[in-house]
């Protein structure tokens, strides 16, 4: 690992200034992804601006019923927070399905959202990878790609976004709050994480030096039946092969609100808008769920070794939808 400068910021404003004054800087959250990638030589920062102790460690209930999660709230504390457990169970479940107790104690909300792909070619600097070294090619496309994308991939990159938390955030219509020297803005999580297109080196819409300050959970999803389900190679402590987050409201025997997002199928948490559209106004039956999910997954373009993901994601989604509908008394 090469040497680097280290500074700890006391406020978001100071963090952005310290970052701007240091070419080649990276923000440091819990470090559970960044330090790993520095050991592998994938990340080679000249400076770290430590934002892990910024006073953004609160979960705040806003007057309009929404919930603001600070960027430095640790994954374990967020999963345990009473307001999250009671009002957004899908988020608590997604967090608890990820990583291990130790990692969740260190990992921050901001860092989780911005964690890099687990594609083995991305992590191995001796291999070609358009995301790490633009123009070098994609090692995974003809290589080992059992864990890779089936939706929204491009000839340049077939990687998936590894976060479980982000899948729940996408289903909940959460927004990422950003702060930079140009000011503050907010972007829906589902659009914040990008599709690879011709620029797989850009994971998200974040601008250089911009800081994630928090995540906003809208009141609209609060208290609705919601759940997360994840399939993986072992029962715990492994990334998803496919996962689904669902928020569902059934009123008078018909679905009148649905948020469905898939994990591990694409370069971003995949918001299943076609399936949601198909469900609105429909009776919450297994047949309706199967039809809606099939509509969504008909866009899948599996690769040589990952076609199994399509039926896997289908059964996860239909199962969660059916369970939630039952819980809603339908």
């Amino acid at each position: 690992m090469k040497t680097f400068d280290y500074v700890r910021a006391a406020s978001p404003e100071e963090a952005a200034e310290l970052f701007a004054a240091r070419p080649g800087a990276r923000y440091l959250g819990g470090g559970t992804n960044l330090v790993d990638l520095m050991k592998l030589g994938v990340e080679q920062p000249d400076a770290l601006v430590d934002v892990s102790r910024l006073p953004l460690d609160e979960v705040e209930e806003l007057p309009d019923g929404s919930l603001r999660v600070g960027a430095t709230v640790r994954n374990s504390d967020l999963a345990a927070h009473p307001a999250v457990r009671e009002r957004y169970p899908v988020l608590s479940q997604a967090l608890l399905a990820g990583a291990s107790g130790q990692l969740r104690n260190a990992a921050t909300t901001g860092g989780n959202l911005l964690q890099r792909t687990r594609c083995p070619y991305f992590q191995d600097i001796s291999k070609p990878c358009n995301k790490r070294a633009p123009g070098s090619g994609c090692g995974a496309r003809e290589g080992v790609h059992r864990d890779h994308a089936v939706l929204g991939h491009s000839p340049h990159c077939i990687a998936t976004h590894p976060s479980d938390m982000a899948v729940a955030l996408a289903a909940l219509d959460a927004r990422v709050e950003l702060y930079g020297t140009e000011g503050a803005r907010s972007v829906p999580v589902a659009d914040f994480v990008r599709l690879p297109g011709e620029h797989p080196e850009r994971d998200t819409e974040i601008a250089p030096g911009e800081l994630v300050t928090g995540v906003l959970l809208p009141a609209a999803g609060a208290g609705l039946p919601s759940a997360y389900r994840k399939a993986r190679d072992r029962a715990s402590y492994a990334f998803a092969l496919a996962s689904v987050a669902v928020v569902l409201r059934v009123t008078d025997g018909v679905v009148d609100q649905a948020g469905i997002a898939f994990g591990a199928l694409a370069h971003r948490p995949w918001r299943a808008r076609r399936a949601e559209q198909a469900l609105l106004g429909a009776a919450p039956t297994q047949a309706a769920f199967e039809h809606a999910v099939d509509l969504e997954l008909s866009a899948a373009e599996p690769l040589r070794d990952n076609a199994y993901k399509v039926p896997l994601a289908r059964s996860l989604a239909v199962d969660v939808l059916t369970r939630l509908a039952r819980a809603a008394g339908a």
Partner: peptide
Amino acid sequence: RVNSCLLL
């Protein structure tokens, strides 16, 4: 509890 291998 934390993983000391990933904490600077």
